[in-house]
Amino acid sequence: MLDTVSAVFAMLLTPLCETILMVAGTTFFSILLGLPLGVVLNLTDPVGLKPRRMLNNVLSRVVNLLRSFPFLILMILVFPLSRLIVGESTGTKATIVPLAIAASPFVARVIESALKEIDPQVLLAARVMGSSTWQIVYKVMIPEAMPSIVAGITLTVINIIGYSAMAGAIGGGGLGDLAIRYGYHRFRTDVMIGAVLVIVVLVEAVQLLGSWISDRMIKKR
């Protein structure tokens, strides 16, 4: 029994590292793309600091379109782009490309709604003091909304973990790939259970860490 458990966990180690790499890379790139997009969505809103109805409508539609795309189809469609950027269309690194494209609009909405929660009177105070729009964004809006942003990013990371497991179905690597190849195709229920358990622990750890950081920020205020 112990031998089986240790053998399964030895099998899980490399896919776990791949999943962590995929999730970390995707989180980084989705924040890189989603943060400015969310800020622009908030600023250009009809009640934002720089209302631009047309631009806001276009960006909003693009975000909605990308969010409504089924992930597996998006991943297949993005294969050529992954090949162009990473040099391959499957595997851990290649999967970061569709994962980041799928997660960025989610991050953008998270940022947009976190920024909307800020009291408009606080932004008014920053404007009265002669802050530029950029100063208001990075010195007031983002710090004020940080606990909500952290909570939203935590949710995003958990979604990315789910997507990364799904990506395993079409050669994405990581724990999902292991669960499909061994657990499903080779009827290794022990591997399937092991992979699911590790994913559950990973999600739980991310949630605990995210909540801890967010709570700490709120308590400091």
Binding site: D119, Q121, L124, A125, V128, M129, E144, R221
Partner: peptide
Amino acid sequence: RRSLGMVFQQFNLFSS
């Protein structure tokens, strides 16, 4: 604007 000061009813301080 930077040469003017303003105080509000609800203080409008930055909680962060």
